[in-house]
Simulated scan of single mutants.
Amino acid sequence: MSYDLLAKHFGLTPERAFFDGVMDRYMAGGLLYSIVSVSNVEQETLVEMYKLTEHMKTQGDRYVSSFVQSKEGRFLVTEKNQDFVVVRNENLPPVADGKIGRKLGKFHFRGRLFEEKVEKISRMGQWKTLWERRLSQLEKAYYSVIENQPADEFEKRFVESYPYYNALSENAIQYLVDTELDEDPKPEDAGTICHERFQNTTWGTESCIHFPFHWVFDHASRDLAEWIREQYHLKNQTFHPGLQEFLREYGSVAPLSPFGWRLLYSRILFPLHYFECIEEYYISQSDGQKKAAEDKLDRYLKNSNHYEAFLSDFYHLSEVPVKKWGIPLVGWL
């Protein structure tokens, strides 16, 4: 259907299609096209994304996707009762190793210059509410398992580990609340274009694409925290040099304020990996997926002392002058 859709509505005949680690891309006339299903995306959200992509283009971002008009002059096309948009990108090489921090800093700097109010994709000031909601869902699952007795090894480990991760989550929420009470945000703490979950491959592995359907509007520390979280879990014994290089590179373009550092730390403190692991287990459709979640939980629990050490050393590793800026540490770590 993809080839038909591109030919019928956009007059395009792709020479090839490939999966770039993020989604399918179609090469036509030296440009890359991506088809996005938007049946469940509100029109106002699409308008915000369109405005943000246009803004990034005017700021000189060559990697940002452009929304493509169909032959009928419309951005939205319908095929088999489903709505789609198509976006186009230049075929530019992926970000070189070690340069992602600097590129992200530049991206955030440009995104911060957007002057209109962003509402639909904004997550500014919402972390506390979202974390509390997630914690309350996990708490319900925990009490349900206790009530019905743990059915298997995974549930036993969940019941044993939950109080610890509940306390860690409460610490993260408290650290966030204290930050918002204690620190005055600086101009560089204004909202910018961020990503739902920024990771090493978010911008693609075959070519570099700033894809608006990954975007949210938030404090820049969100992207830094999620990149650091992924790197820690991928290579927790060897991530130090990469972390320092990433943060130095980022800081050379867009230094964080004390408020920004504290937000970043609260986000790393929140044990998202644990929440996702438990959720994965309960929504798994197959024994293989359940087993993968089980193995992951095992690994996290065995690694919890190392994770605590990482949280305890984080400011030191990141070369943050905590004394000079009066940044509080978490006492028990």
Rank of each mutant, 00 (worst) to 15 (best):
G242C: 01
T202A: 01
V41I: 14
L12P: 04
V320C: 03
M56I: 08
P14S: 12
V64P: 07
W215F: 15
L301R: 02
D287I: 14
V86Y: 00
V320F: 00
E132R: 11
Q137W: 08
I193R: 05
E170Q: 14
F114D: 03
H9F: 15
Y307H: 14
T238Y: 07
T78W: 08
E44R: 07
Y3H: 12
R74Q: 15
A292M: 12
L5E: 08
Q244R: 00
G251D: 09
S284I: 10
S286C: 04
Y142V: 01
V22C: 05
G242L: 11
E116K: 05
H108N: 03
M56T: 06
A190G: 05
M27A: 13
R133Y: 13
E153T: 10
A96R: 13
P258C: 03
A151C: 07
E42A: 11
E153L: 10
K106N: 06
D61F: 07
T205D: 10
K8P: 01
G326S: 14
Y282K: 11
Q149A: 15
V322L: 11
I228P: 00
R88V: 12
D223E: 08
T205V: 14
G101K: 02
P241K: 06
V159R: 02
L135D: 00
D4C: 13
G111S: 05
E279P: 03
S312Q: 14
F239T: 01
W215C: 10
Y175G: 02
D24M: 14
A7C: 07
V322N: 08
F213P: 01
A172Q: 08
E230Y: 07
L104R: 00
R248S: 03
L92F: 09
L301V: 01
W227K: 10
R248I: 02
Y250K: 10
H306Y: 10
L181M: 09
V36L: 11
S257T: 12
N171L: 12
D184C: 09
V177G: 01
F154I: 02
L76S: 11
K291L: 14
I173G: 02
D295I: 07
V22N: 10
M124H: 06
H210M: 11
E155K: 01
E276T: 12
L269R: 06
P258R: 02
F270A: 02
